[in-house]
């Protein structure tokens, strides 16, 4: 279960980026760490690629070599932690 302590510092900014590419988000839905890209946010492959492009611009990380791992990430929180680990050089 995701907790506040688990959340990466990147989470708020990532949520902002997700809002930009989640065109079919139900009205009033609040994106959280636990939001799933497909089931909850309805993201298509195209939207997820757009998101990754925005993530690179926002966080100054290169995701090209990490695509196979990124595809397997199901939630916004998992992705925030992944980005956090990249930024920390882990």
């Amino acid at each position: 279960m995701t907790t506040i302590q688990d959340n990466a510092a990147e989470l708020p900014a990532l949520i902002g980026l997700v809002q930009q590419v989640a065109y079919d988000l139900p009205a009033g839905y609040a994106i959280s760490a636990g939001s799933r890209f497909v089931e909850d946010l309805g993201l298509e492959s195209v939207n997820r690629l757009m998101l990754m492009t925005l993530v690179e611009q926002e966080f100054g990380v290169s995701l090209e070599q990490h695509m196979p791992a990124l595809i397997e990430l199901q939630t916004v929180g998992d992705t925030a932690r992944f980005i956090g680990s990249l930024r920390a050089g882990r």
Binding site: V21, M50, M52, T53, L54, E56, M67
Partner: peptide, 28 residues
């Protein structure tokens, strides 16, 4: 090219070559 056209208007234009490489990286 189609993905780039869908990007949010206020976002900086994506690097098309990079986007292409990101697509290709799923085909390994």
């Amino acid at each position: 090219q189609n993905i780039a056209r869908k990007m949010p208007r206020h976002a900086p234009p994506p690097d098309l070559d990079k986007l292409t490489r990101m697509l290709i990286s799923q085909y390994e």
